[in-house]
Measured scan of single mutants.
Amino acid sequence: LTDEELVTMSVRELNQHLRGLSKEEIIQLKQRRRTLKNRGY
């Protein structure tokens, strides 16, 4: 997933992508998404 996709994707879509990932990967992705959102994309 690109940063842009992460930010513009709805939470529902995101959760579908996260299905099948490990807990660590999910946590990393969610942190990255929060960081991007805070940057004001």
Score class of each variant (00 low, 15 high):
K23Q: 09
M9E: 01
V7N: 04
V7T: 06
K37N: 05
E25A: 09
L14Q: 00
V11A: 10
T2K: 04
T35F: 15
T2D: 03
T35P: 02
R32T: 01
R33D: 01
S22T: 12
I26F: 04
R12D: 09
N15E: 11
I26A: 15
L29N: 01
Q31I: 12
K37G: 04
K30A: 05
L6F: 00
E5V: 07
G40T: 07
E13V: 06
L6D: 00
R39V: 12
L6T: 00
K30P: 00
Q28P: 02
R12A: 12
G20I: 04
G20D: 06
L21R: 08
I26E: 04
L29V: 14
L29D: 01
I27D: 10
K30S: 04
R34A: 14
Q16I: 13
E5D: 10
E13L: 06
L29I: 15
L14H: 00
Q16R: 14
R33S: 03
Q31W: 07
V11Q: 10
K23G: 06
T8H: 12
K30T: 08
R33M: 09
Q31C: 04
N15P: 00
Y41P: 11
R19G: 06
R39L: 15
Q28C: 12
N38V: 06
R39S: 13
Q28T: 11
D3H: 02
L18T: 06
I26H: 04
H17K: 10
L6I: 05
E13H: 05
S22V: 04
R19Q: 10
S10H: 04
G40Y: 14
H17R: 14
E4F: 14
I26L: 04
H17T: 05
Q31P: 00
K30Y: 14
T2G: 04
Q31F: 07
E4C: 14
H17P: 01
V7I: 12
Q31V: 09
L36A: 04
K37L: 15
V7A: 10
S22D: 06
N15I: 14
K37H: 06
Q28N: 10
Y41C: 07
T2N: 04
E4I: 12
R39Q: 15
L29M: 07
M9T: 02
E4P: 03
L21W: 06
L14T: 00
E4A: 10
R12V: 09
R19D: 07
E5N: 05
H17M: 10
E13N: 04
R34K: 13
R32Q: 03
H17Q: 05
G40F: 13
G40C: 15
D3G: 01
K30L: 15
L29F: 04
E5Y: 05
L14A: 00
R32E: 01
N15L: 15
G40H: 12
N38Q: 10
V7S: 07
E25D: 08
Q28V: 11
E4V: 09
L1W: 06
S22M: 05
T35D: 15
V11T: 10
D3S: 02
T8K: 14
E13Q: 10
L6R: 00
L21P: 00
E13Y: 02
N15R: 15
L21G: 01
L18I: 10
Y41I: 10
K30H: 09
L36T: 02
V11F: 09
Q28S: 11
Y41R: 06
T35Y: 15
Q31H: 10
Y41G: 11
L29W: 04
E25G: 04
K30M: 15
E24H: 11
R39A: 15
L1R: 01
E25S: 07
S22A: 07
L36C: 03
N38R: 09
T8Y: 07
Q16A: 13
Q28L: 13
L14P: 00
L6G: 00
S10P: 05
M9F: 04
R34L: 07
N38E: 14
L21F: 07
N38A: 10
S10W: 00
G20H: 08
E24M: 10
T8D: 06
N38D: 12
E13P: 00
R33G: 01
R39N: 14
T8P: 01
L14D: 01
E13A: 08
L36M: 04
Y41N: 13
R33L: 14
L36W: 00
T35V: 14
K37M: 14
L1H: 02
T35K: 14
K23R: 11
V11K: 15
D3I: 03
G40I: 14
T2Y: 02
S22P: 10
E24S: 12
G40E: 13
R33I: 14
E13R: 06
V7K: 07
R39H: 12
S22K: 08
H17L: 14
R39P: 10
E4Q: 10
L36E: 01
N38M: 09
L6C: 00
D3Y: 02
I27C: 13
L36Q: 03
K30N: 05
S10Y: 01
L18M: 13
I26G: 12
E24G: 11
N38F: 06
V11W: 15
I27Q: 13
L29H: 04
E24W: 11
E24C: 13
I26N: 03
N15S: 09
S10A: 04
R12Q: 12
L18K: 02
L29P: 00
R34H: 10
Y41L: 13
Q16K: 14
R39Y: 10
L18W: 05
L1M: 06
L18A: 04
E4S: 08
Y41A: 12
K37T: 06
E24F: 09
G40R: 05
K30I: 15
M9Q: 01
G40N: 08
S10I: 02
E25Y: 06
D3P: 02
M9W: 03
R34I: 08
Q31G: 06
K37Y: 05
N15K: 15
E25K: 08
L1Y: 04
S22E: 06
D3T: 02
E5S: 05
G20E: 05
M9R: 01
N15F: 12
N15M: 14
R34F: 05
S10T: 14
L14W: 11
K30E: 06
L18E: 01
E13W: 03
K30F: 15
L14G: 00
T35N: 13
L21Y: 07
R19P: 03
D3V: 02
V7F: 08
K23W: 08
S22C: 05
R32H: 04
N15H: 12
G20C: 07
M9I: 05
L18P: 00
Y41S: 11
E25I: 10
L21H: 06
Q16M: 13
H17D: 00
V11Y: 13
G20P: 03
Q31L: 11
R32A: 02
R32M: 03
G20Q: 05
L1Q: 01
M9K: 03
K23N: 07
S10V: 02
R32L: 04
T8A: 13
R19V: 11
I27V: 11
R32I: 03
E13I: 05
R32N: 01
R19C: 04
R32K: 06
I27H: 12
R33V: 09
L1T: 02
E24Q: 12
K37C: 15
V11L: 12
S10R: 03
G40K: 09
V11H: 12
H17F: 15
D3M: 03
E4R: 11
R33P: 00
L21N: 02
S22F: 02
L21I: 04
L36K: 02
Q28E: 13
S10E: 03
E24R: 11
L29A: 06
L21A: 07
Y41F: 13
R39W: 09
T8S: 14
E5F: 05
I27A: 13
R12G: 07
T35M: 15
L36H: 03
Q31T: 09
G40L: 15
E25C: 09
S22G: 07
V7M: 14
E25H: 07
I27E: 11
G20N: 08
L18N: 02
R19S: 08
L14R: 00
E4T: 08
K23P: 09
T35A: 14
E5P: 00
L29E: 02
Q16H: 10
E4W: 15
T8L: 09
T2M: 03
E5A: 09
L6M: 02
Q31S: 09
L18S: 04
R32F: 01
D3F: 03
L6W: 01
N38H: 08
N38L: 12
M9P: 01
R39K: 15
Q16E: 13
K23S: 08
I27N: 10
R33T: 03
M9A: 02
K23E: 08
L36N: 02
Y41M: 11
E24D: 11
K23L: 10
T35S: 10
K37E: 06
R34G: 05
M9H: 03
K37V: 08
N38P: 04
N15A: 13
L14S: 00
L14K: 00
Y41V: 13
K37F: 08
T35E: 15
